[in-house]
Design a protein around this nucleic acid. Structure first.
Lengths: 216, 216
DNA sequence: GACTGTCTCAAACATCTGTTTTATACATGT
DNA sequence: ACATGTATAAAACAGATGTTTGAGACAGTC
């Protein structure tokens, strides 16, 4: 019986931490089981296989991402689109960089840059809703329909920026020490928000990069 | 003898292609040897071990990256900093996305997001010079010293954007078809240049993202 | 008290992967 | 002709890794 599934729960916790730190491939079943003080066979017993455990962890990450999107949506409700974008950036960065919540959000970013067979669930359940929300915000800022190519391009430009602040990043080797203190997180969010609003404005006005030489 | 090192050359070519497509870890020695029509032992004979082959391929990538930085530097010589940034972005994107030259430049991006023991050479020989060049450009645009934190933050915001246009990217699943035609590459470069110049301007003027609510 | 289903464990298994060994062929220099 | 250094090939090796097996412990059920 053991309806609490104690071992199962410990495996999920260990998987969340380790998968979040290193992604699916670079974590070994034996490592997870050691961290969860469980037998090597425990993963296969409770989750079928390694990917089964990963899928459950990823589902939690998907839920966390949806919650973040929802929080950003609500924080921006009734405000002008630029302010909606700023608030989205700030809420997103807090989620990705705060030590308490970072594990699951990093897992998302890893899954996107190095996908597993579980990618589909992520895209359909979490990425698509977020992109739809941001598309609405950006379409307003750009003054164009949400399916304009510029909308998706801007979303790309915005969503990629946070990876500069993740550990392992080259920036650390170049003197930029990012430790993830609340103050640093706000500074990073502030920068990305500023940079992104400015970038979108430039795209909206069709200025900033004439074909190759400089009309301006 | 065999001073041409035919097998060695084929191994390097196969390694360049495969490492560029999938990175160090996800390529197997047997795969490389099969692609190079060589024996499994060939890699160890010619390069000591797998990492030895990788280091030689990476060195080519480092050289390609330095050449790109140099080309951007020269293309911008004597021009205003914004134009220097635009030209850098365009030259960089052409290198990363053009089918002919993409393999080595993708290897660079892989090495940065998922480092191997060979990372040091990359950072010291290729990343640092590029960052120094961009720091100069951005310091001018921002009107601040090159070691101001905003400089490095902007470099991060600029350099991360191209990953939106790499294969495997989520954008493909959401309807944005990027095939890498010259026209599409120019469009992408145009977008990133516009967005980045606009972003840097906003950071320079301290506008675009007041603390949380909206003064503007 | 025997039975059943749940859970855990140590051990073994199968596969993949980087590496090494051993033998052989070939060209070159003396 | 012989020795030497270079290159390739087939096979074996060693370690890691995901998975399976078979036995046993434990709790609840008939």
């Amino acid at each position: 019986m053991n309806a609490d599934h104690e071992t199962r729960t410990r495996l999920l916790a260990a998987g969340e931490r380790l998968f979040g730190e290193r992604g699916f491939r670079k974590v070994t079943v034996r490592e997870i089981c050691r961290a969860a003080r469980a037998n090597v066979a425990a993963v296969n017993y409770h989750f079928g296989d390694k990917l089964g455990l990963y899928r459950e962890v990823l589902q939690r990450a998907i839920d966390a991402m949806r919650a973040t999107t929802k929080a950003a949506r609500e924080a921006g409700k009734g405000r002008p689109p630029e302010e909606q974008l700023r608030r989205f950036v700030r809420i997103f960065l807090r989620a990705v960089l705060s030590p308490e919540s970072q594990a699951l959000h990093r897992l998302i970013m890893r899954e996107m840059s190095d996908p597993t067979p579980a990618l589909d669930a992520l895209v359909e359940q979490a990425v698509r809703p977020r992109v739809e929300y941001l598309s609405g915000v950006l379409a307003q800022m750009l003054g164009c329909p949400p399916d304009d190519e510029r909308v998706l391009r801007c979303i790309g430009s915005i969503q990629t920026q946070p990876s500069s602040y993740m550990p392992n990043s080259i920036a650390e080797r170049l003197g930029y020490r990012f430790k993830g203190t609340p103050a640093q997180i706000e500074e990073a969010a502030d920068h990305i928000a500023r940079f992104s609003v400015g970038g979108v404005r430039a795209v909206a006005h069709g200025k900033g990069a004439p074909p190759v030489s400089g009309r301006r």
